[in-house]
Design a binder for these strands. Structure first.
Lengths: 193, 193
DNA sequence: GTCTATACCGTGATAGAC
DNA sequence: GTCTATCACGGTATAGAC
Protein backbone atom coordinates (compact mmCIF):
# COMPACT_ATOMS: atom_id res chain seq x y z
CA UNK A 1 0.00 0.00 0.00
CA UNK A 2 2.37 2.68 -1.07
CA UNK A 3 1.09 4.45 -4.20
CA UNK A 4 -2.35 4.77 -5.83
CA UNK A 5 -4.31 7.61 -4.22
CA UNK A 6 -7.58 9.54 -4.74
CA UNK A 7 -7.89 8.99 -8.47
CA UNK A 8 -5.60 6.04 -9.25
CA UNK A 9 -1.98 6.58 -10.02
CA UNK A 10 -1.11 6.18 -13.69
CA UNK A 11 -1.13 4.23 -16.91
CA UNK A 12 -4.90 4.01 -16.95
CA UNK A 13 -5.43 7.68 -17.77
CA UNK A 14 -6.18 6.96 -21.40
CA UNK A 15 -8.79 4.41 -20.46
CA UNK A 16 -10.34 6.76 -17.93
CA UNK A 17 -10.62 9.49 -20.54
CA UNK A 18 -12.45 7.11 -22.83
CA UNK A 19 -14.84 6.05 -20.10
CA UNK A 20 -15.71 9.54 -18.93
CA UNK A 21 -15.97 10.87 -22.46
CA UNK A 22 -18.37 8.17 -23.60
CA UNK A 23 -20.49 8.66 -20.52
CA UNK A 24 -20.79 12.39 -21.09
CA UNK A 25 -21.20 12.13 -24.87
CA UNK A 26 -24.09 9.71 -24.38
CA UNK A 27 -25.64 11.79 -21.61
CA UNK A 28 -25.41 15.30 -23.00
CA UNK A 29 -24.44 14.88 -26.63
CA UNK A 30 -21.09 15.21 -28.36
CA UNK A 31 -21.00 18.94 -29.00
CA UNK A 32 -22.45 19.90 -25.66
CA UNK A 33 -19.69 18.04 -23.89
CA UNK A 34 -16.58 20.19 -23.67
CA UNK A 35 -13.05 18.93 -23.26
CA UNK A 36 -12.84 21.16 -20.22
CA UNK A 37 -15.65 19.20 -18.62
CA UNK A 38 -13.99 15.86 -19.32
CA UNK A 39 -10.70 17.14 -17.98
CA UNK A 40 -12.28 18.50 -14.80
CA UNK A 41 -13.94 15.19 -14.05
CA UNK A 42 -10.55 13.54 -14.20
CA UNK A 43 -8.84 16.34 -12.34
CA UNK A 44 -6.41 17.15 -15.13
CA UNK A 45 -6.16 20.03 -17.61
CA UNK A 46 -7.52 20.20 -21.13
CA UNK A 47 -4.02 19.99 -22.53
CA UNK A 48 -3.48 16.67 -20.81
CA UNK A 49 -6.16 15.19 -22.99
CA UNK A 50 -4.17 16.27 -26.00
CA UNK A 51 -1.27 14.18 -24.87
CA UNK A 52 -3.37 11.03 -25.13
CA UNK A 53 -5.55 11.98 -28.08
CA UNK A 54 -4.87 14.18 -31.10
CA UNK A 55 -8.37 15.70 -31.19
CA UNK A 56 -11.80 15.43 -29.63
CA UNK A 57 -12.85 13.33 -32.60
CA UNK A 58 -9.98 10.96 -31.89
CA UNK A 59 -11.42 10.17 -28.50
CA UNK A 60 -14.74 8.99 -29.84
CA UNK A 61 -13.03 7.16 -32.69
CA UNK A 62 -10.95 5.13 -30.25
CA UNK A 63 -14.02 4.28 -28.17
CA UNK A 64 -15.89 3.32 -31.31
CA UNK A 65 -13.10 1.06 -32.49
CA UNK A 66 -12.86 -0.71 -29.15
CA UNK A 67 -16.57 -1.25 -28.71
CA UNK A 68 -17.79 -2.19 -32.18
CA UNK A 69 -15.38 -5.00 -32.93
CA UNK A 70 -18.12 -7.52 -32.07
CA UNK A 71 -20.24 -6.16 -34.92
CA UNK A 72 -17.34 -6.43 -37.30
CA UNK A 73 -16.78 -10.01 -36.26
CA UNK A 74 -20.47 -10.75 -36.61
CA UNK A 75 -20.55 -9.50 -40.17
CA UNK A 76 -17.42 -11.43 -41.04
CA UNK A 77 -18.91 -14.59 -39.64
CA UNK A 78 -22.29 -14.16 -41.29
CA UNK A 79 -20.84 -13.52 -44.71
CA UNK A 80 -19.34 -16.99 -44.71
CA UNK A 81 -22.56 -18.70 -43.71
CA UNK A 82 -25.26 -19.99 -46.04
CA UNK A 83 -27.94 -17.33 -46.46
CA UNK A 84 -30.57 -19.34 -44.59
CA UNK A 85 -33.33 -18.12 -42.33
CA UNK A 86 -31.51 -19.54 -39.33
CA UNK A 87 -28.43 -17.50 -40.18
CA UNK A 88 -30.52 -14.37 -40.32
CA UNK A 89 -32.08 -15.11 -36.96
CA UNK A 90 -28.64 -15.60 -35.50
CA UNK A 91 -27.50 -12.26 -36.91
CA UNK A 92 -30.36 -10.47 -35.18
CA UNK A 93 -29.76 -12.35 -31.95
CA UNK A 94 -26.07 -11.46 -31.85
CA UNK A 95 -26.64 -7.89 -32.98
CA UNK A 96 -29.13 -7.39 -30.20
CA UNK A 97 -26.67 -8.77 -27.67
CA UNK A 98 -23.82 -6.67 -28.99
CA UNK A 99 -25.93 -3.54 -28.57
CA UNK A 100 -26.97 -4.52 -25.09
CA UNK A 101 -23.35 -4.74 -23.99
CA UNK A 102 -22.45 -1.34 -25.39
CA UNK A 103 -25.57 0.68 -24.70
CA UNK A 104 -23.83 3.99 -24.16
CA UNK A 105 -22.03 3.88 -27.48
CA UNK A 106 -25.14 2.92 -29.40
CA UNK A 107 -27.20 5.51 -27.66
CA UNK A 108 -24.55 8.05 -28.55
CA UNK A 109 -24.63 7.06 -32.20
CA UNK A 110 -28.40 7.02 -32.29
CA UNK A 111 -28.78 10.47 -30.78
CA UNK A 112 -25.86 12.17 -32.49
CA UNK A 113 -26.34 11.04 -36.06
CA UNK A 114 -25.74 14.50 -37.46
CA UNK A 115 -22.38 14.61 -35.71
CA UNK A 116 -21.45 11.03 -36.44
CA UNK A 117 -22.28 11.50 -40.11
CA UNK A 118 -19.51 14.08 -40.47
CA UNK A 119 -17.02 12.07 -38.44
CA UNK A 120 -14.94 9.28 -39.91
CA UNK A 121 -16.79 6.70 -37.86
CA UNK A 122 -19.93 7.68 -39.73
CA UNK A 123 -18.73 6.08 -42.94
CA UNK A 124 -17.66 2.94 -41.11
CA UNK A 125 -20.97 2.59 -39.32
CA UNK A 126 -22.89 3.20 -42.52
CA UNK A 127 -20.95 0.46 -44.30
CA UNK A 128 -21.67 -1.98 -41.49
CA UNK A 129 -25.35 -1.17 -41.48
CA UNK A 130 -25.52 -1.73 -45.21
CA UNK A 131 -23.67 -5.00 -44.82
CA UNK A 132 -26.18 -6.13 -42.21
CA UNK A 133 -29.13 -5.15 -44.37
CA UNK A 134 -27.52 -7.01 -47.24
CA UNK A 135 -27.30 -10.12 -45.10
CA UNK A 136 -30.94 -9.95 -44.13
CA UNK A 137 -32.70 -8.96 -47.30
CA UNK A 138 -33.25 -10.75 -50.59
CA UNK A 139 -32.53 -8.49 -53.54
CA UNK A 140 -35.42 -9.83 -55.61
CA UNK A 141 -38.01 -9.52 -52.86
CA UNK A 142 -40.83 -6.97 -53.08
CA UNK A 143 -40.05 -3.51 -51.74
CA UNK A 144 -42.20 -3.99 -48.64
CA UNK A 145 -40.14 -7.00 -47.64
CA UNK A 146 -36.93 -5.08 -48.02
CA UNK A 147 -38.41 -2.45 -45.75
CA UNK A 148 -39.19 -5.21 -43.26
CA UNK A 149 -35.52 -6.14 -43.04
CA UNK A 150 -34.48 -2.60 -42.34
CA UNK A 151 -37.37 -2.19 -39.99
CA UNK A 152 -36.15 -5.25 -38.10
CA UNK A 153 -32.82 -3.57 -37.45
CA UNK A 154 -34.52 -0.34 -36.42
CA UNK A 155 -36.79 -2.26 -34.10
CA UNK A 156 -33.79 -3.56 -32.21
CA UNK A 157 -32.51 -0.01 -31.87
CA UNK A 158 -35.93 1.22 -30.80
CA UNK A 159 -36.18 -1.58 -28.30
CA UNK A 160 -32.93 -0.48 -26.72
CA UNK A 161 -33.40 3.26 -26.75
CA UNK A 162 -36.94 4.42 -26.73
CA UNK A 163 -38.55 1.55 -24.92
CA UNK A 164 -36.01 1.42 -22.16
CA UNK A 165 -37.33 4.66 -20.75
CA UNK A 166 -40.93 3.56 -20.79
CA UNK A 167 -41.33 -0.01 -19.67
CA UNK A 168 -39.90 -1.99 -16.82
CA UNK A 169 -37.25 -4.69 -17.18
CA UNK A 170 -34.78 -3.75 -19.97
CA UNK A 171 -33.82 -7.35 -20.62
CA UNK A 172 -37.41 -8.38 -21.09
CA UNK A 173 -37.98 -5.49 -23.45
CA UNK A 174 -34.90 -6.42 -25.43
CA UNK A 175 -36.24 -9.93 -25.86
CA UNK A 176 -39.59 -8.61 -27.02
CA UNK A 177 -37.92 -6.37 -29.58
CA UNK A 178 -35.86 -9.30 -30.79
CA UNK A 179 -39.02 -11.33 -31.17
CA UNK A 180 -40.69 -8.64 -33.28
CA UNK A 181 -37.57 -8.15 -35.38
CA UNK A 182 -37.24 -11.87 -35.99
CA UNK A 183 -40.88 -11.96 -36.99
CA UNK A 184 -40.26 -9.30 -39.59
CA UNK A 185 -37.39 -11.10 -41.29
CA UNK A 186 -39.27 -14.39 -41.18
CA UNK A 187 -42.09 -12.76 -43.14
CA UNK A 188 -39.66 -11.24 -45.58
CA UNK A 189 -37.75 -14.49 -45.97
CA UNK A 190 -40.75 -16.66 -46.71
CA UNK A 191 -41.88 -14.58 -49.63
CA UNK A 192 -38.73 -15.40 -51.60
CA UNK A 193 -38.07 -18.54 -53.72
CA UNK B 1 -42.41 47.62 -59.73
CA UNK B 2 -40.63 50.09 -57.53
CA UNK B 3 -38.91 48.31 -54.64
CA UNK B 4 -37.76 44.72 -54.10
CA UNK B 5 -34.16 44.24 -55.22
CA UNK B 6 -31.38 41.62 -55.07
CA UNK B 7 -32.62 39.78 -52.01
CA UNK B 8 -36.23 40.91 -51.57
CA UNK B 9 -36.98 44.11 -49.75
CA UNK B 10 -38.36 43.55 -46.26
CA UNK B 11 -40.85 42.13 -43.82
CA UNK B 12 -40.00 38.61 -44.87
CA UNK B 13 -36.60 38.61 -43.16
CA UNK B 14 -37.86 36.53 -40.29
CA UNK B 15 -39.28 33.95 -42.66
CA UNK B 16 -36.07 33.85 -44.66
CA UNK B 17 -34.03 33.25 -41.52
CA UNK B 18 -36.26 30.31 -40.66
CA UNK B 19 -35.92 28.81 -44.11
CA UNK B 20 -32.17 29.10 -44.32
CA UNK B 21 -31.68 27.94 -40.75
CA UNK B 22 -33.78 24.80 -41.18
CA UNK B 23 -32.00 23.97 -44.39
CA UNK B 24 -28.58 24.25 -42.79
CA UNK B 25 -29.58 22.58 -39.53
CA UNK B 26 -30.88 19.58 -41.44
CA UNK B 27 -27.85 19.47 -43.73
CA UNK B 28 -24.99 19.94 -41.30
CA UNK B 29 -26.52 19.55 -37.88
CA UNK B 30 -27.59 22.13 -35.33
CA UNK B 31 -24.29 22.76 -33.54
CA UNK B 32 -22.19 22.72 -36.67
CA UNK B 33 -24.28 25.47 -38.18
CA UNK B 34 -23.09 28.85 -36.94
CA UNK B 35 -25.18 31.99 -36.78
CA UNK B 36 -22.49 33.63 -38.83
CA UNK B 37 -23.13 31.17 -41.63
CA UNK B 38 -26.86 31.81 -41.57
CA UNK B 39 -26.28 35.55 -41.52
CA UNK B 40 -23.84 35.38 -44.43
CA UNK B 41 -26.32 33.47 -46.58
CA UNK B 42 -28.82 36.26 -46.00
CA UNK B 43 -26.23 38.96 -46.38
CA UNK B 44 -26.71 40.44 -42.92
CA UNK B 45 -24.64 40.31 -39.73
CA UNK B 46 -24.96 37.95 -36.80
CA UNK B 47 -26.41 40.66 -34.61
CA UNK B 48 -29.21 41.24 -37.10
CA UNK B 49 -30.48 37.75 -36.38
CA UNK B 50 -30.73 38.69 -32.74
CA UNK B 51 -33.25 41.33 -33.62
CA UNK B 52 -35.65 38.72 -34.93
CA UNK B 53 -34.87 35.88 -32.52
CA UNK B 54 -33.76 35.95 -28.90
CA UNK B 55 -31.42 32.97 -29.28
CA UNK B 56 -30.30 30.30 -31.69
CA UNK B 57 -32.66 27.93 -29.93
CA UNK B 58 -35.52 30.34 -30.56
CA UNK B 59 -35.03 29.97 -34.29
CA UNK B 60 -35.51 26.23 -34.29
CA UNK B 61 -38.37 26.49 -31.82
CA UNK B 62 -40.27 28.81 -34.13
CA UNK B 63 -39.70 26.51 -37.09
CA UNK B 64 -40.81 23.56 -35.03
CA UNK B 65 -44.00 25.30 -33.92
CA UNK B 66 -44.90 26.25 -37.46
CA UNK B 67 -44.25 22.87 -39.00
CA UNK B 68 -45.58 20.41 -36.45
CA UNK B 69 -49.08 21.79 -36.05
CA UNK B 70 -50.40 19.02 -38.33
CA UNK B 71 -49.22 16.41 -35.83
CA UNK B 72 -50.88 18.26 -33.01
CA UNK B 73 -54.12 18.38 -34.97
CA UNK B 74 -53.82 14.71 -35.82
CA UNK B 75 -53.50 13.75 -32.16
CA UNK B 76 -56.41 15.97 -31.20
CA UNK B 77 -58.57 14.41 -33.87
CA UNK B 78 -57.58 10.83 -33.07
CA UNK B 79 -58.25 11.20 -29.36
CA UNK B 80 -61.90 11.88 -30.11
CA UNK B 81 -62.31 8.88 -32.38
CA UNK B 82 -63.29 5.37 -31.31
CA UNK B 83 -60.15 3.30 -30.73
CA UNK B 84 -60.81 1.06 -33.75
CA UNK B 85 -58.32 -0.51 -36.10
CA UNK B 86 -59.43 1.82 -38.86
CA UNK B 87 -58.64 4.84 -36.68
CA UNK B 88 -55.16 3.50 -36.06
CA UNK B 89 -54.58 2.98 -39.77
CA UNK B 90 -55.67 6.52 -40.41
CA UNK B 91 -53.25 7.81 -37.77
CA UNK B 92 -50.35 6.08 -39.48
CA UNK B 93 -51.47 7.29 -42.90
CA UNK B 94 -51.68 10.91 -41.79
CA UNK B 95 -48.50 10.76 -39.78
CA UNK B 96 -46.64 9.43 -42.76
CA UNK B 97 -48.02 12.24 -44.90
CA UNK B 98 -47.21 14.89 -42.33
CA UNK B 99 -43.62 13.72 -42.23
CA UNK B 100 -43.38 13.67 -46.01
CA UNK B 101 -44.39 17.32 -46.18
CA UNK B 102 -41.84 18.45 -43.61
CA UNK B 103 -38.90 16.21 -44.39
CA UNK B 104 -36.23 18.70 -43.40
CA UNK B 105 -37.64 19.25 -39.93
CA UNK B 106 -38.09 15.54 -39.28
CA UNK B 107 -34.68 14.74 -40.58
CA UNK B 108 -33.29 17.41 -38.29
CA UNK B 109 -35.06 15.97 -35.27
CA UNK B 110 -34.06 12.44 -36.16
CA UNK B 111 -30.39 13.27 -36.53
CA UNK B 112 -30.08 15.76 -33.71
CA UNK B 113 -31.87 13.94 -30.93
CA UNK B 114 -29.19 14.74 -28.40
CA UNK B 115 -29.60 18.43 -29.12
CA UNK B 116 -33.37 18.33 -29.33
CA UNK B 117 -33.60 16.47 -26.06
CA UNK B 118 -32.07 19.40 -24.19
CA UNK B 119 -34.13 21.97 -26.05
CA UNK B 120 -37.67 22.85 -25.02
CA UNK B 121 -39.04 21.27 -28.18
CA UNK B 122 -37.68 17.94 -26.95
CA UNK B 123 -40.28 17.70 -24.21
CA UNK B 124 -43.05 18.66 -26.62
CA UNK B 125 -41.99 16.10 -29.20
CA UNK B 126 -41.65 13.41 -26.56
CA UNK B 127 -45.17 14.07 -25.33
CA UNK B 128 -46.54 13.81 -28.84
CA UNK B 129 -44.72 10.58 -29.52
CA UNK B 130 -46.09 9.10 -26.33
CA UNK B 131 -49.58 10.28 -27.26
CA UNK B 132 -49.24 8.58 -30.64
CA UNK B 133 -48.03 5.36 -29.09
CA UNK B 134 -50.90 5.54 -26.64
CA UNK B 135 -53.34 5.80 -29.54
CA UNK B 136 -51.86 2.78 -31.27
CA UNK B 137 -51.23 0.33 -28.50
CA UNK B 138 -53.54 -1.58 -26.19
CA UNK B 139 -52.36 -1.41 -22.60
CA UNK B 140 -53.27 -5.00 -21.84
CA UNK B 141 -51.60 -6.48 -24.90
CA UNK B 142 -48.47 -8.64 -24.58
CA UNK B 143 -45.16 -6.77 -24.52
CA UNK B 144 -44.23 -7.87 -28.03
CA UNK B 145 -47.37 -6.24 -29.40
CA UNK B 146 -46.60 -3.00 -27.65
CA UNK B 147 -43.19 -3.12 -29.26
CA UNK B 148 -44.92 -3.60 -32.60
CA UNK B 149 -46.76 -0.31 -32.18
CA UNK B 150 -43.61 1.60 -31.45
CA UNK B 151 -41.83 -0.27 -34.19
CA UNK B 152 -44.55 0.86 -36.59
CA UNK B 153 -43.80 4.48 -35.83
CA UNK B 154 -40.06 3.88 -36.18
CA UNK B 155 -40.62 2.14 -39.46
CA UNK B 156 -42.23 5.26 -40.87
CA UNK B 157 -39.25 7.29 -39.74
CA UNK B 158 -36.86 4.73 -41.17
CA UNK B 159 -38.78 4.73 -44.41
CA UNK B 160 -38.31 8.46 -44.70
CA UNK B 161 -34.71 8.78 -43.61
CA UNK B 162 -32.60 5.74 -44.10
CA UNK B 163 -34.33 4.23 -47.08
CA UNK B 164 -34.53 7.43 -49.01
CA UNK B 165 -30.80 7.31 -49.62
CA UNK B 166 -30.78 3.73 -50.80
CA UNK B 167 -33.69 3.00 -53.05
CA UNK B 168 -35.26 4.82 -55.93
CA UNK B 169 -38.61 6.63 -55.82
CA UNK B 170 -39.12 8.21 -52.37
CA UNK B 171 -42.90 8.16 -52.67
CA UNK B 172 -42.95 4.47 -53.46
CA UNK B 173 -40.67 3.78 -50.52
CA UNK B 174 -42.90 5.81 -48.25
CA UNK B 175 -45.87 3.74 -49.31
CA UNK B 176 -43.98 0.51 -48.66
CA UNK B 177 -43.00 1.71 -45.19
CA UNK B 178 -46.60 2.64 -44.50
CA UNK B 179 -47.65 -0.83 -45.57
CA UNK B 180 -45.22 -2.51 -43.20
CA UNK B 181 -46.16 -0.18 -40.35
CA UNK B 182 -49.86 -0.83 -40.88
CA UNK B 183 -49.15 -4.54 -40.91
CA UNK B 184 -47.50 -4.25 -37.53
CA UNK B 185 -50.39 -2.51 -35.84
CA UNK B 186 -52.87 -4.88 -37.44
CA UNK B 187 -51.04 -7.79 -35.83
CA UNK B 188 -50.94 -6.01 -32.51
CA UNK B 189 -54.59 -5.02 -32.70
CA UNK B 190 -55.93 -8.49 -33.46
CA UNK B 191 -54.39 -10.03 -30.40
CA UNK B 192 -56.52 -7.92 -28.08
CA UNK B 193 -60.11 -8.65 -26.94
C1' DG C 1 6.63 9.83 -20.70
C1' DT C 2 3.06 12.65 -18.44
C1' DC C 3 1.32 16.65 -17.69
C1' DT C 4 0.69 22.41 -16.84
C1' DA C 5 0.64 27.21 -18.54
C1' DT C 6 -0.64 29.99 -21.90
C1' DA C 7 -2.18 31.78 -26.06
C1' DC C 8 -5.02 31.55 -30.69
C1' DC C 9 -9.18 31.94 -33.23
C1' DG C 10 -14.22 30.81 -33.85
C1' DT C 11 -18.72 30.48 -31.35
C1' DG C 12 -23.19 32.30 -29.16
C1' DA C 13 -24.55 36.32 -26.87
C1' DT C 14 -25.09 41.37 -25.16
C1' DA C 15 -24.90 46.57 -25.11
C1' DG C 16 -25.19 50.54 -27.41
C1' DA C 17 -24.43 53.60 -31.63
C1' DC C 18 -26.63 54.85 -36.11
C1' DG D 1 -33.91 47.34 -37.97
C1' DT D 2 -29.35 46.81 -38.42
C1' DC D 3 -24.48 47.37 -37.25
C1' DT D 4 -19.82 47.65 -34.27
C1' DA D 5 -17.56 46.32 -30.28
C1' DT D 6 -16.94 43.28 -26.76
C1' DC D 7 -17.52 39.15 -23.81
C1' DA D 8 -16.80 34.29 -22.03
C1' DC D 9 -16.30 29.82 -23.60
C1' DG D 10 -15.31 26.25 -27.27
C1' DG D 11 -11.43 23.23 -29.68
C1' DT D 12 -6.66 23.43 -30.76
C1' DA D 13 -1.56 24.12 -30.47
C1' DT D 14 2.95 24.53 -28.44
C1' DA D 15 6.67 25.35 -24.94
C1' DG D 16 8.41 23.64 -21.14
C1' DA D 17 8.14 21.72 -16.02
C1' DC D 18 8.71 17.22 -13.64
Amino acid sequence: MSSSSPQQRRGNTRQRIQDVALELFAEQGYEKTSLREIAERLDVTKAALYYHFKTKEDIIISVFDDLTRPIDDLIGWAEEQPRTLETKREVLRRYSEAMASGVSLYRFMQENQATVRELSIGETMKKRLFALVELLRSADAPLADQVRCISALFTLHAGMMFLQHVEGDPEETRKAALEVATDLIVQAHHRQP
